[in-house]
Design a protein around this nucleic acid. Sequence first.
DNA 1: ATAATACTTAGAGTTTACTCTAGGTGTTCG
DNA 2: CGAACACCTAGAGTAAACTCTAAGTATTAT
Lengths: 151, 151
Amino acid sequence: MSYSIGDVVKKTGLSAHTLRYYEKEGLLPFVKKNASGVRAYSDEDLRWLTMIECLKDSGLQIKEIRQYIEWFNEGDSTLSQRLSLFENRRKILEKEMARLTVVMNKIRYKELLYREAVRVGSLDVATNERRLKHLKKKLFESPDDFDKVTG
Amino acid sequence: MSYSIGDVVKKTGLSAHTLRYYEKEGLLPFVKKNASGVRAYSDEDLRWLTMIECLKDSGLQIKEIRQYIEWFNEGDSTLSQRLSLFENRRKILEKEMARLTVVMNKIRYKELLYREAVRVGSLDVATNERRLKHLKKKLFESPDDFDKVTG
DNA sequence: ATAATACTTAGAGTTTACTCTAGGTGTTCG
DNA sequence: CGAACACCTAGAGTAAACTCTAAGTATTAT
């Protein structure tokens, strides 16, 4: 099976502009064109687009994805480089998730603080409630200046 | 206590450029200047910078942070808007963490696949190993095209 | 006193990943 | 056969968040 750029737009949700841009950036080196220069995407190309989406979701930049595809095309001699890439990415994702957990607690505290402030009609009153002060301590293992902010 | 922009650079790790940029964008409406126009940051200003960092970490854009600060300055009449902001942010962070969990599993599979490929010296051989095929099933609850990609 | 350093402003430049425009060619349908 | 539509390329424009430059003033150290 082969697909026009319009077909791929429908399948992937990417714009035709974006698909051509990806190709220009070296992310789709396998896409064939017919005699009049019209792109014909294969199922393999669609699977690469799925892979590209995953790599983008993991935070890779386009030039890093291009590097990965180049390594893939060079074959088994680049296996260790590709392993490093995924190792690093996994570590970065772990850090990112840890970071988000910390931020989440701070935002959750603010949400509860403002929920109470709305209930009693005053931010100052809510901020000084024992229950919320206690919650603050519970949510922030390592307190920083954050808990002094009144906003 | 008050601090020069250089002091704040050392304390926060932000550049002087960035601090002035934040001020221009309305994120630091309280910073005082002396007779010759030199900024003197207060402890309150430093706490706002901590708050701004948290909001940025949670994914808010600068204009959204400015909006929040404007609401803060308007007092208790904007409590419900601020509550909405934190509610939305919490929901977005939850989605983001769920997204990262999915991506993490895919990247972890790739890492293990390439670790094995490096060990045996062949991506094709590793891809066809029963152990890794089984792992793939375990990691991806809802299989998509991803598991067909060989790269 | 003078050199170095820190500060000021306005505004231009950078990066990333698109996103769109202009001007044109090719294909399909009634 | 001609209108409508999909496609092509090259290149310009956009948004966000900085990042830096230029040209000048003020402060500090020797």
